[in-house]
């Protein structure tokens, strides 16, 4: 059983352990929160804020270095918002949609690139904040609130008439849609990121060298795509709400 012994060595290897569904609980009053999600999300938020602060400290007309990079990022998220909401009304929504994209993107990539495993937690492990269902549901619910706000501020209480348009027969389907939107948003992101991390972890467990690399690269790609999809869909929903308002 030399093979078995070899495997035991592998699983004693600290990099190749995997814990799912275990959380590093913090207690605040009567409530518990997942500490590992907050720790990593703080790192992500700090990264975003520090980069923006450094890049916008002394703005020049001819950009260079970090400012150039940030302008590229801003252009990118502005294009997402513009293509989904339209030239006329996209501007106030750029911060929300752009931050959705940047936060999810940096969070996903941090999960794949940052060596979280170096930091030991008593329970659970540090990973991308987006692999916790709480984070993705929070973002999805905020998106729902955002498009409700967009529709109601545009059209008032008449916004709810969209449920019986084009015909009242579609009422149940239209109401169902309000639930499927956040569900699909949150589960798509959550599932993709968690599955990606699991696949990488299992592969690392089985073959610790080289073989997981293509899967990791694929993971980076899907992470970026998922961030883009989330932001684009949020923009599309908000744009749809605003468009409904315009027809009146």
């Amino acid at each position: 059983m030399t093979f078995f012994d070899g495997l035991n060595v592998t699983s004693a290897f600290p990099l190749a352990e995997l814990e799912v569904g275990e959380h590093f609980y913090w207690e605040i009053g009567n409530y518990t929160v997942h500490g590992q999600v907050f720790i990593t999300s703080w790192v992500v938020i700090a990264l975003l804020l520090i980069t923006s602060y450094l890049g916008t400290r002394n703005l020049e007309r001819v950009p260079s270095g970090l400012q150039n990079f940030l302008e590229y990022a801003l252009d990118f998220v502005r294009d997402i918002a513009k293509s989904q909401i339209g030239e006329k009304e996209y501007r106030p929504w750029v911060p929300f949609i752009g931050t959705l994209f940047l936060f999810i993107f940096v969070a996903n990539w941090s999960g794949a690139l940052f060596p979280w495993k170096i930091i030991e937690l008593p329970e659970s492990e540090l990973a991308a904040p987006t692999n916790d269902i709480n984070t993705t549901v929070a973002l999805a619910l905020l998106t729902v609130l955002a498009y409700f706000y967009a529709g109601i501020s545009k059209r008032g209480i008449g916004y709810f008439k969209k449920y019986i348009e084009p015909t009242p027969i579609l009422l149940p389907i239209n109401i169902l849609e309000e639930f499927t939107k956040p569900l699909s948003l949150s589960f798509r992101l959550f599932g993709n990121i968690l599955a990606d991390e699991l696949v990488v972890a299992v592969l690392v467990l089985l073959v610790p060298l080289f073989i997981p690399l293509p899967v990791m690269a694929l993971g980076l790609f899907t992470s970026a795509i998922q961030a883009l999809i989330f932001a684009t869909l949020a923009g599309a929903y908000i744009g749809e709400s605003l468009e409904h308002g315009e027809e009146e």
Binding site: T32, V33, I45, L48, L49, N134, V137, L139, L142
Partner: peptide, 22 residues
Amino acid sequence: LFDFDATLPLIALQFLILVVLM
């Protein structure tokens, strides 16, 4: 995996603060 607790509203709040700061 599907353990909802106070993380959800706090993350939402945190995200809103991030939006404002950004």
